[in-house]
Amino acid sequence: MFTLLTINFCSFAQKNIEIIKFSDVEQLLQKNDGIRVINFWASWCKPCVSEMPVFETLANEYQYNRVSVIFISLDFKRDIETVKKFVAEYQIKSQVYLIDEPDYNSWIDKVSPQWSGAIPATIISNGFKKEFYEQSFDYQSLSDKIRHFF
């Protein structure tokens, strides 16, 4: 019985949510150790929350193809506990960061000149090629975008 409880607890445990700066995002985009799907979201954004299971399914199904999903929360730093509770409640297993750069206008153009600042927004990158999408995704459309990177 004890072992079963431990396994269940560990399987839903979320890694610590790291607070990062934009320079860290730039480093994530430059890595070429596989395909990175980086989703910008916030816990208060209903379309963002609705599509998160799509990204989690994709991460699970493509994990052996060197595809990783990274969520970057645009919630305020002071709301880190809310983000942690959200991640635990929704059992998010992908890496989650919270960006501490409140002056969005100073960095969103560096992510993509096409980004108006609206979320959800997603970047797919392999370190050499980068595509940006300011939209919500269903599984099929996200999977189709990933296939362009193979």
Results as ranks from 00 to 15, higher is better:
residue 4 L to T: 02
residue 5 L to Y: 11
residue 5 L to R: 10
residue 5 L to E: 13
residue 6 T to F: 04
residue 6 T to I: 10
residue 8 N to C: 09
residue 10 C to W: 08
residue 11 S to Q: 14
residue 11 S to C: 11
residue 14 Q to M: 06
residue 14 Q to L: 02
residue 15 K to Y: 03
residue 16 N to G: 02
residue 18 E to V: 12
residue 19 I to L: 09
residue 19 I to N: 08
residue 19 I to Q: 12
residue 19 I to P: 06
residue 21 K to S: 15
residue 21 K to G: 11
residue 24 D to F: 09
residue 24 D to W: 03
residue 25 V to N: 05
residue 26 E to W: 00
residue 27 Q to M: 11
residue 28 L to E: 14
residue 28 L to Q: 13
residue 30 Q to W: 00
residue 32 N to M: 07
residue 33 D to M: 06
residue 35 I to F: 11
residue 36 R to W: 07
residue 36 R to D: 12
residue 36 R to M: 06
residue 37 V to E: 06
residue 38 I to S: 01
residue 39 N to D: 14
residue 40 F to C: 09
residue 41 W to M: 09
residue 42 A to V: 08
residue 42 A to K: 05
residue 44 W to M: 05
residue 45 C to L: 10
residue 47 P to F: 12
residue 49 V to H: 13
residue 50 S to A: 15
residue 50 S to I: 04
residue 50 S to D: 15
residue 52 M to V: 05
residue 53 P to V: 00
residue 54 V to K: 10
residue 54 V to Y: 08
residue 54 V to E: 10
residue 55 F to P: 05
residue 60 N to P: 00
residue 61 E to P: 11
residue 62 Y to V: 02
residue 64 Y to K: 15
residue 65 N to I: 00
residue 70 I to L: 14
residue 70 I to E: 08
residue 72 I to P: 02
residue 72 I to H: 02
residue 73 S to W: 01
residue 75 D to N: 13
residue 75 D to E: 07
residue 76 F to V: 00
residue 79 D to S: 14
residue 80 I to Q: 07
residue 81 E to H: 09
residue 82 T to N: 11
residue 82 T to Y: 01
residue 83 V to D: 00
residue 85 K to V: 01
residue 85 K to D: 14
residue 86 F to D: 04
residue 86 F to G: 01
residue 86 F to L: 10
residue 87 V to E: 01
residue 88 A to Y: 02
residue 88 A to L: 06
residue 89 E to A: 13
residue 89 E to H: 14
residue 90 Y to D: 12
residue 90 Y to Q: 11
residue 93 K to I: 01
residue 96 V to F: 02
residue 96 V to N: 01
residue 98 L to T: 06
residue 98 L to Q: 13
residue 99 I to G: 01
residue 100 D to T: 05
residue 100 D to N: 15
residue 103 D to T: 05
residue 104 Y to M: 11
residue 104 Y to N: 09
residue 104 Y to H: 10
residue 108 I to T: 08
residue 112 S to L: 02
residue 112 S to C: 10
residue 114 Q to W: 03
residue 115 W to S: 08
residue 115 W to T: 08
residue 117 G to E: 09
residue 117 G to T: 09
residue 119 I to E: 08
residue 121 A to N: 04
residue 121 A to P: 11
residue 122 T to G: 13
residue 123 I to K: 02
residue 125 S to T: 15
residue 126 N to G: 09
residue 126 N to W: 06
residue 128 F to R: 10
residue 130 K to D: 04
residue 132 F to C: 13
residue 132 F to V: 07
residue 133 Y to K: 06
residue 133 Y to R: 10
residue 134 E to F: 03
residue 134 E to K: 08
residue 136 S to K: 10
residue 136 S to G: 11
residue 137 F to A: 11
residue 138 D to Y: 03
residue 139 Y to H: 10
residue 140 Q to H: 10
residue 140 Q to F: 10
residue 140 Q to V: 03
residue 140 Q to N: 12
residue 141 S to N: 14
residue 142 L to D: 05
residue 148 H to F: 09
residue 149 F to Y: 15
residue 150 F to S: 14
residue 150 F to P: 05
residue 150 F to C: 04
residue 150 F to E: 15
